[in-house]
């Protein structure tokens, strides 16, 4: 597979994944951009992996989780507040507002926990594969998910009148 073929096939999916991770289209774009530049420059190594797709997803996830080491967060933060351009924002029905609170609670989760939630409930990956992407044990993945869900449920219970 060439880099071009890979980008044709996977770039859109990676962008969607990055949106779920960061919750913000600009951050997602920067995250994908930084990762894919490295992918392109080191394509020979990436192509040697059993699954280049998983390898790249792992690169991207690590870059997201290890935000202190990367420069992209600092660059993004200089832009100020993330855009609030949700299509559903225009819907003022109470239940929609409730549901979109989920999104802001997600943003407050530790990055690793958020990544496990995205991999589990958006990408629908099995625990073993999530563990491989995050480079941790399967047990860690499970505890990460359950801790994240507990946090979200607590928030939910507190938000309900």
């Amino acid at each position: 597979m060439t880099y071009e073929e890979f980008a044709d096939a996977r770039l859109a999916a990676l962008l969607r994944y990055a949106v779920m991770l960061t919750g913000d289209p600009h951050q997602a774009q920067d995250l994908v951009q930084d990762t894919m530049v490295r992918v392109q420059l080191n394509w020979r190594r990436v192509a040697r992996a059993d699954s280049p797709e998983r390898y790249v997803r792992r690169m991207l996830t690590n870059q997201f989780v290890d935000w202190r080491r990367g420069s992209w967060v600092r660059r993004v933060l200089l832009r100020g507040e993330p855009d609030e351009t949700l299509p559903s924002r225009s819907d003022h029905a109470q239940h929609t507002v409730d549901r979109d609170q989920v999104w802001s609670w997600l943003a407050r989760l530790p990055r690793r926990q958020r990544a496990t939630l995205v991999l589990r409930y958006y990408e629908d990956l099995p625990d073993a594969e999530i563990a491989e992407i995050l480079g941790c044990a399967v047990g860690t993945v499970r505890s990460c998910i359950s801790r994240a869900l507990t946090t979200l449920r607590t928030e939910y219970a507190e938000a309900r009148p």
Binding site: V19, M20, G23, D24, R99, D100, V102, Y121, Y122
Partner: peptide, 14 residues
């Protein structure tokens, strides 16, 4: 609810 929240935000994708 989580799955739905993710799916709802897909249009954010650049």
């Amino acid at each position: 609810d989580l799955r739905a929240a993710f799916a709802r935000h897909e249009p954010l994708t650049p």
